[in-house]
């Protein structure tokens, strides 16, 4: 490909030279797929700021004009969702931290320490990754409701914590469940990272007199920061967006302890039909925490990788 001069003069001839059918086709394909993925997003944003009338009258991806513009949908959605935001966050954040931390510890124990039956244990973890959530819903519900009603037991204690109500105790079984089902995949992710670390680090620690736990705490954990960023982002997205367990353990979207994923399907639906504007606003608002997390952690993750190198 011919280089255009760097002094700023625009070389039209060389540009035209490169235009041929193949390139045009390539670019057309790229633009098409860009559109394919971005247009629904754009439509959603447009719908969120239109009145119902405007939604019915105009093209879905056209911006609202004049009277058709409103922020009322967003306001309404915010009011409806505020309680469930809180629920979602107090459920997702501890669950993510728990599963990532335990996953890292498990991966350390299975990869950097040598003991018998390690492989067997590892196989159990791998099997754990493939357990379908749908298969365990009934036993799970029975466990948390009948066999070990933790929610009911913790209700008075949770009620006494400031900012919390008694019904938030319903989220505790959900947190524990997510931690349990999140550990296998976190372990697998951390294991691949730990396999790339030199074993001599742990050996040096041993010779320095440190116990296995101390080596994890002082040597391996600090080094894992970039991986923590990655796994945290992944797990948070999984747990925050998860519907099935939430639905099973916190029954009903009208329950006060319902996370965002339960409330979303019900928003904007009434006997008179579906209010698309409200639904779209709600959907975007629900995605905001994940977006913030990506922005926050991606920077730290990249920084962590840079200092490593």
């Amino acid at each position: 490909m011919s280089q255009s001069s760097s002094t700023g003069s625009f070389d039209v001839a060389s540009l035209v030279e490169d235009v041929n059918l193949r390139r045009v086709a390539q670019y057309a394909l790229v633009v098409f797929f860009l559109g394919f993925f971005l247009v629904p997003l754009e439509t959603g944003i447009m719908t969120a700021i239109k009145t119902n009338e405007s939604v019915a009258r105009s093209l879905p991806f056209a911006p609202p004009v004049g009277e058709g513009f409103t922020l009322g949908n967003i306001q309404f959605a915010l009011e409806q969702l505020s309680g469930s935001f809180f629920n979602s966050l107090i459920m997702s954040i501890p669950a993510t931290i728990g599963s990532v931390l335990f996953g890292s510890m498990a991966a350390y124990g299975l990869t950097m320490v040598n003991w018998r039956a390690q492989m067997g244990m590892l196989m159990l973890f791998v099997v754990g990754v493939f357990v379908p959530y749908q298969a365990v819903l009934v036993p799970l519900a029975r466990f948390w409701n009948n066999i070990f009603p933790l929610a009911r037991m913790l209700e008075p204690m949770v009620a006494s914590i400031p900012f919390f109500q008694g019904y938030h105790a319903e989220l505790v079984p959900l947190v524990i469940t997510h931690i349990a089902y999140g550990i296998p995949i976190c372990t697998i992710l951390f294991r691949s990272y730990y396999q790339s670390l030199p074993n001599s680090l742990v050996e040096a620690g041993k010779i320095d007199g440190a116990s296995i736990t101390k080596i994890y705490r002082r040597v391996i954990l600090p080094i894992s920061k970039p991986m923590f960023g990655v796994v945290f982002i992944y797990q948070f997205t999984q747990i925050y967006n998860e519907f099935l367990f939430a639905f099973t353990l916190v029954t009903g979207s009208d329950a006060p302890a319902a996370p965002v994923t339960l409330v979303l399907p019900a928003i904007g639906a009434s006997t008179s039909g579906i209010d698309f504007g409200i639904r779209m606003s709600a959907a975007f608002l629900a995605a905001v925490p994940t977006l913030i997390l990506y922005v926050a952690f991606a920077e730290q993750f990249a920084k962590g990788l840079r200092t490593e190198a």
């Binding site: 680090l201 620690g205 010779i207 007199g209 040597v219 490593e308």
Partner: peptide, 17 residues
Amino acid sequence: PQNRDIAMVFQDYALYP
């Protein structure tokens, strides 16, 4: 190794990064 009162220098130094 922790209890052997030995010290080791590794080929790749194994310093805590």
